[in-house]
Amino acid sequence: MSVRIMTRVWDIRLPDSEKLVLLALADCANDEGLCWPSMATLATKCSKSDRTVQASIKALVAAGHLSREEVPGRGCRYIVHPTPEAVSPPKRLRPEKSSPPKGATPTPEAASDKPSRTITSPVASPPPRTRASKVRPFRLPDDWKPERFADGTVAREVIDRRGRDWARAAMEAFRNWAKNARDKDGIGRKTDWQAAWANWVIEQDKRDGRHGGSQRVAGTDGRGGSASGMGPTVDAASRFLARRGIGEHHEPHPRG
C-alpha cells in the first residue's frame, strides 16, 4: 500500500465508482504505483461487479490516471499515477520476461482473474492416548515388610488395642498363609499386599472376638481360656515359635 499515491487519489475529483477503483489500486500498489491485483480482488475491495470495475478502469486509463498492460501468463499490470488534470497516457511498458521490475514488491494476491482461496491451517489433532500400565498380581516377596497403618484407620486401631504380641503373631500367621496359599483363582497373589495385610488384621480381630478369648487372662475361667490372655491367635503363634525354639526377643515386631 502506498500512502503517498492514495493521498493524491483523494485530491482529485472523480465519479464514485472510478475513485473507489483507483483507491483500491493504490491500496495494492507500491511507492512507484505498480501493482497487479486480480479482477476478483478489485471487485471485492470496491463491492462492485466485475463489469463495473472494468468500465471504471477503462475510464481511468482514458483520463490519464492509470496505465494498464496485459502480461501473458500473469494477468494485468497497472501503474497508478493520479493527476489533477487529464494527460496523455504514458508510453507502453516493456514487460520483463523472467522477473518483475526491480524495486517492485509483490502483492499478496495472485496475478490472475481467479478469486483467491484462503488456506486455513488444520486443527491440531489431540495426542494419542496411552494405556496406563496394569499391575499384575504377584506372590508375597520374602523380604516384604509391612508399612505402619495410618492413624484413624481400623487396622491402626486394632494394632494399638491388641498390642505388640498380638500383632507379631498375626504377622506370622499372615506370612505363613501367603507362603502356602494356592495360586488357584488368584488367592495366593495380590496386587497390594499392604491392603491385604490390613484386611487380615481386621478379620483376625473379628475371628478372635467370635472365639471369645481376646481379653481373657490365663486361669480365670477354668474352661480352656486363652493361655496368654491375648486370644487364640497369640497362643497359636507362641506354640509355633516354641516348637522352632525362637524367643520373643528374636522376632522382629511388624510395622502395623
Rank of each mutant, 00 (worst) to 15 (best):
R175A: 00
D151V: 07
C28D: 14
S125Q: 08
E248G: 07
P89L: 11
W200L: 01
A167S: 13
D143M: 02
F174T: 08
Q204D: 05
F174A: 04
A124H: 08
V135I: 11
K134G: 01
A242N: 15
I79H: 10
E248R: 14
D208K: 06
W177Q: 05
D11C: 11
I246P: 03
D16H: 10
P127T: 10
T153K: 04
Q54L: 11
Q194C: 00
I202C: 13
W10D: 15
E96F: 02
R164K: 08
C76W: 10
D142K: 12
A195Q: 13
T83N: 15
A59L: 14
P15N: 04
V135P: 01
K134T: 04
L140N: 02
K145R: 11
A155L: 07
F149P: 05
V135A: 01
S98P: 03
S125W: 03
H249C: 09
W200E: 03
A195W: 04
R13K: 15
V80F: 05
T130E: 09
G33M: 09
R244I: 02
A236T: 14
N176P: 02
N199C: 10
A132M: 08
S67T: 07
S116M: 12
A124W: 14
R156G: 06
D183P: 03
P106S: 12
R92K: 14
P137H: 01
I246N: 12
N176Q: 12
L140C: 01
G73S: 11
G186F: 05
A236F: 11
S121D: 06
G209S: 15
P84G: 00
D27I: 00
R255L: 14
P232S: 04
A24L: 05
R175K: 05
S38H: 09
R255H: 13
H81R: 13
E85M: 09
K97N: 08
R148Y: 03
S99E: 07
R168S: 13
R51G: 02
A55L: 13
K184G: 05
G229A: 01
A124T: 12
G209A: 12
P90C: 03
C28P: 04
